[in-house]
Design a protein around this nucleic acid. Structure first.
Lengths: 243, 243
DNA sequence: AATCTTCGTTCCGAATAATGGAACATTTAT
DNA sequence: ATAAATGTTCCATTATTCGGAACGAAGATT
C-alpha cells in the first residue's frame, strides 16, 4: 500500500461519513497514529479536498464537488440524455435515469426525478448491482463483456439467485428488447429499462423507476413504450440525427 | 511537496482536461519521468478516481462523481434550498442559485435553471469572484470575515475597481438588504441577490441570474422581491418553521 | 479544585517507500 | 524501412514517510 493509497483512504472516509471527524477518529479508522493521520490530511486540506470546521474536525471539502461535476459534465452521453430524461419525467411524473457500465460496474450517470411525494431518487455516481436490476439484465443481454458479475446476493425474496434463472431471464430480455425489475432489488421498487443502441453497440440504458404499486397502474405496455422511446431518442441524438 | 501532492496534481490535471491524456502527456505536464507518473497513477486507477480508455489514455474516473455528490448532498442548506429554488425558477422561468462562502471563497452550492434558450447555467462547485458579484457584495455587507478579497481584477467595463467605490456600494447594499450585479462580472449577465439570514448570521445567498436585457424587462422591483422572498423562505426552512 | 484523560500538534532518528535512469517491446510518425 | 516516441518493468540510490515521544491545551472525572 502506497502513501497515496493512505491519502485516498482518508478521502473516501471523509466522504462517506455524514458528520465531521476528529483527527483521532480518522487515525483510529485508518489504523495509524495521530501524527501520521495529521501529516496525510495536510495536503488534502491545502487542496480543498478536505476542510476543517471551527472545532478542527475534518470533513470532505468543496473542491471534491467541482472535481466530480467536471467528470459528469464531460460525458457527452449525459448531456445528450438530460433533456430526453427531463421531458419523459415531466410527462409521466416518474423518475427516469441513465445508467452506463464503467470499469465493470453499472453507474447512474444522469437523472430526472418524478414529482410524486414518494419517488425514486437514485444518487448520481452510485453503482447498482448487475443481477438484480433491469439495466443489469440489459447489459447481460446486449453487452455482457462490459459488466462483471461475481456472486448473486439476495436482496429481496424476488431476487434471482441462480445463474440458470438469470440466464433464462436474460434470454427473454434479449428477445423482447427491454427489461423489468419488479422488487428484485429493493422492496417496493419497480423499474422498466431499455438499451441505448447505436452503431451496433450498447451505450447505456434508460430506466423508469417507480413504486411497485404505481407501476401496475401505469401498465407494462405504457412503461415499456416510454423507456424504449426515450432510449431511441437518445440514440438518435448521439448519432446527430435529431434536433 | 509530498507524494500525495503529486497524486493530487495528477487528479486535478485529469479533471481539468476535457479529453483523455496519454501517460507521457501527464508526465510532461507534471514535470516528472514517465515511470513516476505511471506509478502515481496506479493507486488512482485502483480506486476509480482515474480511468483508462481503450487506448490506455487517462481520464478522471467516475468515483470522483460519487465523492463530489456526497459533499453536496450532506449540505443541509442545499437540501433546504432546492425546492425553493426550483419553484422560483419554474415561476419566473429564470435561473436561481444558492451561493455560500467556504474557506474564504464563494461557491455555487445548488441551482435551478430557467427555461430560456439563453439562460444562466452556473456550475455547481465553481467559485465566483467577491468584488464583482451581487452575492459577493452581500457577504461584504453582512459577513465580511467569511470572504477573502485580495485584488480587484477588471472583468468588464462595469467592474468596480477601486476599494472606495466598492465600499460605498457595500454600504448601500447593507442598507437596502439586497444587491445587484449588472454586467460587472460578465457581459450580458445581470444578477439580483438576497442574503439568507438566520440566528443573527448569514448562511448564504440566493441569486437570480438572467440576461441583462431580460432583467430590465422583469424590473428591479420584481427581481428583488423574488430573491428576497426565496431567501426568507430558505431561512424559515432551516429554522424548521416552514413545511 | 485538583487530577486524569484525551486531544492536536511538532520533532526527529530509523525504516521504508519514492525516485528516475536504463532497458525493452510496442506503437506511431517520417 | 527507419526513426522517434510510447508504455511498462526493474533496481540501486535517495529522499520521505513513519511513528514514538513530548508538549500544552481542553475536557472529563474524582
Amino acid at each position: 500500500m502506497t502513501t497515496i493509497d493512505k491519502a485516498l483512504d482518508a478521502l473516501f472516509l471523509l466522504s462517506e461519513r455524514a458528520q465531521a471527524l476528529r483527527l483521532a477518529e480518522v487515525a483510529r479508522e485508518l489504523g495509524m497514529p495521530r501524527s501520521s493521520a495529521h501529516r496525510i490530511l495536510a495536503p488534502l486540506l491545502r487542496r480543498g479536498l478536505a476542510e476543517q470546521d471551527s472545532d478542527g474536525r475534518y470533513r470532505a471539502g468543496f473542491a471534491l464537488m467541482a472535481l466530480g461535476l467536471n467528470v459528469a459534465s464531460r460525458e457527452p452521453l449525459a448531456t445528450a440524455a438530460k433533456p430526453v430524461l427531463e421531458s419523459a419525467a415531466a410527462d409521466l411524473g416518474e423518475t427516469f435515469f441513465l445508467v452506463v457500465a464503467r470499469a465493470g460496474k453499472l453507474v447512474v450517470l444522469e437523472k430526472a426525478e418524478g414529482s410524486g411525494f414518494l419517488r425514486a431518487a437514485p444518487r448520481l455516481g452510485a453503482d447498482v448491482p448487475v443481477h438484480a436490476t433491469a439495466v443489469g439484465k440489459l447489459y447481460l443481454a446486449f453487452a455482457p463483456d462490459e459488466v462483471e458479475i461475481n456472486d448473486l446476493p439476495r436482496y429481496t425474496p424476488g431476487t434471482l439467485r441462480s445463474r440458470k434463472a438469470l440466464l433464462a431471464e436474460v434470454e427473454r430480455v434479449r428477445a423482447q428488447g427491454w427489461a423489468t425489475n419488479i422488487e428484485e432489488w429493493q422492496a417496493g421498487l419497480a423499474v422498466s429499462a431499455a438499451p441505448i443502441l447505436s452503431h451496433g453497440r450498447m451505450h447505456g440504458a434508460v430506466a423508469l423507476a417507480t413504486v411497485a404499486a404505481r407501476f401496475t397502474a401505469i401498465g407494462m405496455t405504457t412503461a415499456t413504450r416510454r423507456v424504449v422511446h426515450a432510449a431511441e431518442g437518445i440514440a438518435l441524438r448521439i448519432e446527430g440525427r435529431s434536433p
